[in-house]
Amino acid sequence: MKTVNVAVGVIVKGEQILLSLRHQQQHQGGKWEFPGGKIEAQESVVEALARELQEELLINIAHDSCEPLIRIEHDYGDKRVCLHVYTVKRFSGEPKGAEQQEIRWVDKAKLADYQFPAANQAILQAIQQSEL
């Protein structure tokens, strides 16, 4: 089984972080996630993140505001992923769910109230331990 490399953005605005709700028919559907998507061949993590966030949320990120937060490998049994997680602190545009997904700004302190895919637990811990 090959591993899918995924660029993940923890988009920060003050004390809030942007979450996106996965569509029911998607892998891990109905759970909240940090937006992002597959890294294509020849793309850097930040290039993939910029492309995915433009497609999903209609925002343009400032590449120099992206910093690595954590890298996670997770095996769901039916799918293996490697999440390359970056914080995003500057962007232009107002985020919208361009793929009809629900999005929500959530206080950092309230992230534990949301249901995330298992691979995201380490991201949640990294956020709580960092100075976002």
Rank of each mutant, 00 (worst) to 15 (best):
A98T: 09
P117D: 02
S92F: 11
N60V: 02
L69E: 02
I123P: 07
I59M: 08
L111V: 05
V10L: 00
Q128Y: 13
K13I: 10
H74K: 07
K31G: 03
L111M: 09
G36E: 11
W32Q: 02
Q115H: 11
I70E: 00
W105S: 06
Q128I: 04
I72E: 15
P117F: 03
A50H: 06
A109D: 08
E99C: 06
A122T: 03
R104S: 12
E40G: 07
P117G: 04
A112H: 12
A109G: 03
Q54A: 14
K108S: 11
L83N: 08
A98R: 13
N5I: 02
L69M: 09
A126L: 04
Q115I: 12
A122K: 14
E52K: 08
D113E: 15
L58T: 07
E47V: 12
G14W: 11
D64P: 00
G77S: 08
E33K: 07
G77A: 08
L132N: 02
A118Q: 15
Q16K: 15
A118T: 14
W32I: 02
G14Y: 10
P35T: 05
V45K: 12
H84W: 09
I103T: 07
S20G: 02
E56W: 01
A7F: 12
L111F: 08
R104K: 15
L58A: 15
A62M: 07
